[in-house]
Amino acid sequence: MKILVCISHVPDTTSKINFIDNGTKFDTNGVQFIIGPYDDYALARAIELKEANAGTTVTVLNVGLAETEPTIRKALAIGADDAIRVNAEPTDSLFVATQIAEHAKGYDLVLMGRESIDYNSGVVHAMVGEMLGIPSVSPVMKLDLEGTTVKMQREIEGGKESVEASLPLVAGCQEPIAEWKIPNMRGIMSARTKPLKVVEPKTTEASVKTQKFELPAPKGAVKMISADNVAELVTRLKTEAKVL
């Protein structure tokens, strides 16, 4: 079986977020980048499937410029067999999905995170499924293979939904589909010798253009109200917070 795991190259969750050029561009200065945490779950599940099913290969794909290669090599260190980098800035979801679809043909299972944690559009998996004409399921929290049948659990409001589909398939993953894998020493040392193919993007226009980013207003001071002073709390919730 051939599995393709699409990973995004995103700022570490503890990064300080700033925008430059009049709020139109993310400031990458001093930011550490990681594999998108949801993509990391997808990768971990792919590696588990590889370990459980002899003959399975895992390829990782990233749409990004050369600076994403350390992130890609981390995925190789975690256990993927080879990698493809589409040499382009991931401008919007349609652009990324188009690039993925271009390379995803022939894979039995295309896994990725339910969304990337930078721009969080959460639609790439659906777009890829549509472009390839195969089912797309998300957010998948459990995924098991039985022959060519894929049994999955989706998270839905207040509960879980069990679904089934046949390969080939696209899945947008989230926890607890697998536990994040820490790359081991052997993986790290072999990552540099694994193939990392760089391909040029398919020409396509981005469908959406970002106008501006804005940061939320900084949090104000916290007011402590004593637990036996419910009346004051209610008054403040009515008059100040205006939530009652």
Partner: peptide, 17 residues
Amino acid sequence: SEEQKMIAQTCLDFIKQ
């Protein structure tokens, strides 16, 4: 090197996890 940084990160992830 990138590899040494990855090794350090593995140690850090191990501590965290």
